[in-house]
Design a protein around this nucleic acid. Sequence first.
DNA 1: AAAAAAATCCCTACATCTTGGGATTTTACA
DNA 2: TGTAAAATCCCAAGATGTAGGGATTTTTTT
Lengths: 200, 200
Amino acid sequence: MNRKIFIIHSSEIIRKGINTILRNYFNVEIVLLEKIEELKAFYELNGQEIIIIYENLSGKKPVNFKPLLDKNQINWIIFQNDKEMSDEPLPLCKFYITLATQARDIERMVSRCWDKSKKQPRTEENEELTIREKEVLQLVALGHSNKAIAEKLFISIHTVISHRKNITEKTGIKSISGLTVYAILNNLIDTETINPEDLI
Amino acid sequence: MNRKIFIIHSSEIIRKGINTILRNYFNVEIVLLEKIEELKAFYELNGQEIIIIYENLSGKKPVNFKPLLDKNQINWIIFQNDKEMSDEPLPLCKFYITLATQARDIERMVSRCWDKSKKQPRTEENEELTIREKEVLQLVALGHSNKAIAEKLFISIHTVISHRKNITEKTGIKSISGLTVYAILNNLIDTETINPEDLI
DNA sequence: AAAAAAATCCCTACATCTTGGGATTTTACA
DNA sequence: TGTAAAATCCCAAGATGTAGGGATTTTTTT
């Protein structure tokens, strides 16, 4: 099931702060919105698991998202300024973020919102890349097209595509930039010696 | 001259939010601190150009950093909660960040802090990327498609393509992997904190 | 030698990116 | 307040990549 996190807050600083914190822990799409109204643009999101983190400064009664996104499994986390806690209990929400909240607290809150359904399996079958796959990955990270890789390795483009499919499957990384970072972290290419401008 | 930005704020959310915003615009070291006392660990920093962004919530009279870091050229920007503006004028500081401050405003403030010392020498035909171009480049390096970038930035895909054309022209880098390496080397993305598996 | 794993090759339909043209509106600055 | 730069938007054709199926031949391993 597709998962998303919406961060709705009027302050760009806070939006980006929470985003930075969550990005490190959760491999899901995070959408930053300034106003609740912008959620309307996502009406078509049905049947998704969603966490909404939204501000409730000045102690107002918080919005109930249920009718807004009815087909989705949603949980929400309320961002509340320390000093302005509402007196009334907040509906369907057990989690609060305050200005002072630490990264690990935020991470824990989001985790709990999802934990009840299921933890990411995180298939660590340790699917090592084969030699050929590493060669292909290296060339991908060096900026070569499938066609160019085929020529360089004296194989057909179909084979290259097959290898890339396997690489994507094993690493779980789809994007070229993700693969590039992976290649750097796994010493398949070297940012010290390689000039980005050399990367065709 | 070595330049640094210190962000001092008790809230991790805000520290990381400002950091995320500034990282996109300034290729300098940014240090995040929770308390002013932690600045002491940097006493040895002499003869540097420093900007300190620190919180002054609850309208207290702000700290004067001058004696603290005397040998440095320092400027500071005060983080002030909207609702709690101090009545007395703040010394030597013309810039404020509030909760509601936008990325562009923060960037401008920091720019102005440094602008007065010296205008960018405009070395060579300094084909600097614009702010928007950097934003797009960052998202490219984070693995997003043009379409996804368009949605994320609330612009049309045509605009994204335009920006990418300009980026390619200015940097001379065509491939996504090359742009990713460029982004890493220019601190637009951070391999320390970003997991390649997060790169969609 | 049989089984398993790796490497090779092929296809189609569709999605996405690139290239090479534009044009208009906003914003910054002098 | 006018100008330049930045940001925005649009099109079409062709290139390239992706997703989903396969299949065959080499190597390795047991």
